[in-house]
Amino acid sequence: MKKIALIIITLFALQLKAQEADIKKTIAIFFEGLHTGDTLKIKSVCSDKMILQSIMENAKGAKFDHEDISEFYKSIASIPKDMKIEERLLDHKIQIDGSMAHAWTPYEFYVNGKLSHSGVNSFQLYKDNGVWKIVYIIDTRRKAS
């Protein structure tokens, strides 16, 4: 009986690790698209109804902002080719419950190799026919000093 319980626990842990890897891959594809200005790549891992919000923090306080998804795609597509943007994820903390997942990813954002700002992304995902899709992103943004 102990062997069966151990096998079940091991299989569950392996399945959870595989799902976490799939979620990390979804987020990686999102950022590959962001870094290259490839909105089709970004759209491939996002829900059509994705919500984007940000909290900009500074010495005066915090400002909450909502970005329309179509405006987000337009802004990504309009990044000049000579401008290099890179968001470096520092960690992934992932929680999963069935077809819903949450990923917490602290980051640093660079423009042409210079640190612009940092903060945390909070991704909400759902599993759509076996594929993880991003449905909600909220992030904090603090200017580099």
Rank of each mutant, 00 (worst) to 15 (best):
N58F: 13
G61F: 00
I85S: 06
D139P: 04
Y73M: 10
A103G: 08
H92S: 12
V111Q: 14
K114Y: 11
W104A: 09
V135F: 01
A103W: 03
K43H: 08
L90F: 00
Q124S: 15
L52G: 10
D48C: 00
Q15I: 00
S116K: 09
T140C: 07
E108M: 14
K127I: 04
A28D: 01
F30W: 14
R142A: 12
I8Q: 09
K143Y: 05
K81Q: 12
K114S: 00
I94A: 04
E108Y: 15
F123P: 00
H66Q: 15
D48G: 09
H66P: 04
M50D: 09
Q95F: 13
M100I: 09
I94E: 05
P80M: 12
W104M: 11
K41R: 08
I23K: 03
K84E: 05
Q15F: 08
Q53H: 13
I4P: 01
K81E: 01
N112S: 01
V131R: 12
I138Y: 03
N58S: 15
M100Q: 13
K93L: 11
Q19R: 05
A77H: 08
H66R: 13
L14P: 09
I29T: 15
A21V: 01
M1D: 10
A13G: 07
M83L: 00
E71C: 02
I23H: 07
I96E: 01
F123A: 03
I85T: 11
L90V: 09
I23M: 11
I9Y: 07
S99K: 08
H102G: 10
K17Q: 07
M56L: 14
D65P: 03
I4T: 07
L11A: 04
K60N: 15
L125V: 02
S70Y: 10
I79N: 09
T140I: 12
I55E: 08
F123R: 02
I42H: 02
I27W: 02
A21L: 10
R141S: 11
D38M: 06
A62N: 14
I55V: 11
K84R: 08
H117W: 02
N129W: 01
D22Q: 12
V131I: 05
K81D: 01
I42V: 04
Y126M: 10
T10V: 11
E32M: 03
A5L: 09
E108I: 07
S78T: 07
I7K: 04
F64A: 13
I27S: 02
W104L: 10
I137Q: 02
K49H: 03
Y110H: 09
F72L: 05
A21G: 00
I9R: 11
I27T: 03
L11R: 04
K24E: 14
I51H: 15
K84L: 13
G119E: 02
I51G: 04
A5Q: 06
F31L: 11
K2E: 04
G119D: 06
I79P: 09
E32N: 14
I138Q: 07
G33I: 04
H117Q: 05
H35V: 01
I69R: 14
N129G: 08
L34V: 15
D97I: 12
S70M: 08
I138L: 00
A18L: 15
I76H: 03
N112D: 05
Q124E: 14
K3R: 14
Q124R: 15
G98K: 05
D22C: 12
L115D: 02
K49W: 05
S99G: 14
